[in-house]
Deep mutational scan, measured.
Amino acid sequence: MTTFKLIINGKTLKGEITIEAVDAAEKEKIFKQYANDNGIDGEWTYDDATKTFTVTE
């Protein structure tokens, strides 16, 4: 398992979430669903070196 981080830079929601997953593709799906469930629609980036997804509205 690898630890992945999501950084949220939303208009109404900001924060960080850290979760373990098998791979980045699995985690991306979970993070995007979390963002969608919380009304966050923005630009996504991924840094493989730090295993960090960022979504910015």
Rank of each mutant, 00 (worst) to 15 (best):
K29E: 10
K11I: 14
E26V: 10
I17Q: 01
F53D: 02
I8M: 04
T12A: 07
K51Y: 10
N38M: 14
T50G: 01
T56Y: 09
A24F: 12
N36W: 14
I17N: 00
K32A: 09
G39W: 12
L13Y: 14
T12P: 04
T12H: 12
D41G: 07
F31K: 01
A25E: 09
T18H: 09
T52H: 03
N38C: 14
T18Q: 09
D37C: 14
K27P: 15
G39P: 03
I19A: 03
A24Y: 11
A35T: 05
G15S: 12
K32I: 11
K51H: 11
E20M: 13
V55Q: 05
T2S: 07
I17Y: 11
Q33V: 04
T2R: 06
A24K: 10
N38R: 13
A49W: 05
K14A: 10
Y46D: 00
K14S: 07
D23Q: 04
Q33Y: 04
D23A: 07
T56A: 04
I8L: 07
F31N: 02
K5H: 13
N36D: 13
D48Q: 05
T45E: 08
K51G: 05
T3K: 13
F4M: 03
A35Y: 06
T2K: 05
I7H: 02
T12C: 15
K5F: 14
N36E: 13
I7P: 00
Y46Q: 00
G10P: 01
E20D: 09
E28A: 07
L6W: 09
T56C: 09
D47M: 02
I40V: 06
T45V: 06
G10E: 02
D47L: 00
N9L: 13
E28N: 05
A24W: 14
T45R: 03
A35M: 15
I30A: 06
V22A: 11
T2E: 08
A49Y: 06
D47W: 02
T45L: 05
L13N: 06
Y34S: 01
D23R: 04
T12N: 09
I7R: 03
Y46L: 00
M1G: 09
D23I: 06
V55E: 03
A21D: 03
K51V: 06
I17H: 03
F4I: 15
A24S: 12
L13V: 12
F4R: 04
T18N: 05
T50I: 03
I17C: 15
